[in-house]
Computed example of a mutant assay.
Amino acid sequence: MSTRLTSGFWVSAYLARLQLAGIPAYVTAKGDKTAGAVVVKVALLDGTARAYERRSDLTTGARVWMELADGPEREVDVMLIRQRLRDPDLWVIELEDRAGRTLLDEDGLSS
């Protein structure tokens, strides 16, 4: 049996890792501290952005980060507004990184 971290704790730890890596990050929507879902948006600083959400992989059952949107930043922002209207418990974390680094593939964040 695996223990899941609360969303608030995970977000705090993630922001600390991003800060150590020199990746600017901001919480633009604060969700439920216990069980709110998290979306990570990375602005590539060229007018485009990507958004990622954590989902269950249907083939393995593992929880993985999957791309939710990729395109003009304005369109990604509109999609995030719609997501937030459907789920007020949703956390939205925005990063700024020209290389698109999110650190979501690193140990402790990837699963």
Rank of each mutant, 00 (worst) to 15 (best):
residue 68 L to I: 01
residue 15 L to S: 02
residue 110 S to C: 14
residue 60 T to D: 07
residue 35 A to E: 09
residue 101 R to L: 15
residue 53 E to M: 10
residue 45 L to M: 14
residue 101 R to G: 04
residue 13 A to W: 01
residue 55 R to Y: 04
residue 54 R to D: 01
residue 60 T to H: 08
residue 96 E to Q: 13
residue 21 A to Y: 04
residue 50 R to G: 02
residue 75 E to W: 06
residue 58 L to E: 07
residue 54 R to G: 07
residue 37 A to N: 13
residue 47 G to D: 03
residue 74 R to H: 09
residue 91 W to D: 03
residue 40 V to I: 15
residue 17 R to G: 11
residue 99 A to R: 10
residue 7 S to N: 04
residue 66 M to I: 05
residue 24 P to A: 06
residue 103 L to D: 03
residue 83 Q to G: 09
residue 91 W to R: 03
residue 12 S to M: 06
residue 53 E to D: 10
residue 105 D to S: 14
residue 63 R to P: 02
residue 97 D to Q: 08
residue 63 R to A: 08
residue 91 W to C: 01
residue 43 A to S: 12
residue 56 S to A: 08
residue 43 A to E: 10
residue 87 D to N: 13
residue 5 L to Y: 00
residue 79 M to W: 08
residue 6 T to G: 11
residue 108 G to F: 06
residue 9 F to A: 13
residue 26 Y to H: 08
residue 51 A to G: 11
residue 53 E to S: 08
residue 81 I to N: 06
residue 5 L to I: 00
residue 14 Y to E: 01
residue 39 V to N: 03
residue 56 S to Q: 12
residue 5 L to P: 00
residue 19 Q to I: 00
residue 57 D to W: 04
residue 24 P to D: 02
residue 77 D to R: 04
residue 10 W to E: 00
residue 51 A to T: 09
residue 100 G to E: 08
residue 86 R to T: 04
residue 85 L to T: 14
residue 36 G to S: 07
residue 51 A to L: 08
residue 28 T to S: 12
residue 52 Y to I: 10
residue 110 S to E: 06
residue 34 T to D: 15
residue 82 R to W: 11
residue 107 D to S: 15
residue 31 G to V: 08
residue 98 R to M: 05
residue 33 K to P: 15
residue 39 V to M: 03
residue 92 V to M: 06
residue 87 D to Q: 10
residue 111 S to K: 05
residue 92 V to Q: 15
residue 31 G to S: 11
residue 68 L to H: 09
residue 56 S to L: 04
residue 70 D to S: 15
residue 38 V to N: 00
residue 36 G to N: 09
residue 13 A to D: 01
residue 43 A to P: 01
residue 74 R to F: 10
residue 54 R to F: 14
residue 66 M to L: 08
residue 20 L to N: 06
residue 57 D to G: 04
residue 56 S to R: 13
residue 2 S to C: 03
residue 54 R to H: 14
residue 105 D to G: 12
residue 99 A to C: 02
residue 1 M to D: 15
residue 54 R to W: 13
residue 38 V to T: 06
residue 27 V to Q: 12
residue 41 K to A: 05
residue 10 W to M: 00
residue 63 R to G: 02
residue 28 T to E: 06
residue 17 R to Q: 09
residue 110 S to V: 12
residue 43 A to G: 09
residue 32 D to W: 11
residue 77 D to N: 07
residue 100 G to A: 06
residue 70 D to G: 05
residue 67 E to H: 03
residue 42 V to C: 07
residue 62 A to Q: 14
residue 16 A to F: 03
residue 79 M to Y: 12
residue 82 R to C: 12
residue 87 D to G: 00
